[in-house]
Amino acid sequence: MENVQTIEFDISGQICPSTLLVALREINRNIEGINAGRVQLAFKTDNRDCTSTIPEAASNMGLRVDVQKDDSRYTILVSKA
């Protein structure tokens, strides 16, 4: 994971469908960097629903998704598969 830039997005307080739409918008914007392995996106959220919607949509795009739980918040990390 050396030389990979992590871009963080705090989407706390947002609920579906805007959480997914925001995540998809940022993935679409950064798709080239992600696919090249230069960039990974970290979405911080307190909405449990999007821990399944975002990973499923990102996986369908052929990306790798890791979900980490920290207390009541989640970090959804989207990177190159």
Binding site: P17, S18, L21, L24, R25, I27, N28, N60, M61, G62
Partner: peptide, 19 residues
């Protein structure tokens, strides 16, 4: 402003490319 149609359209493009 939010353009959900545009976002979903772009996402579908990437999903199709991946598929």
């Amino acid at each position: 402003d939010f353009d959900p149609l545009g976002i979903i359209f772009d996402s579908f493009r990437h999903i199709l490319a991946s598929l």
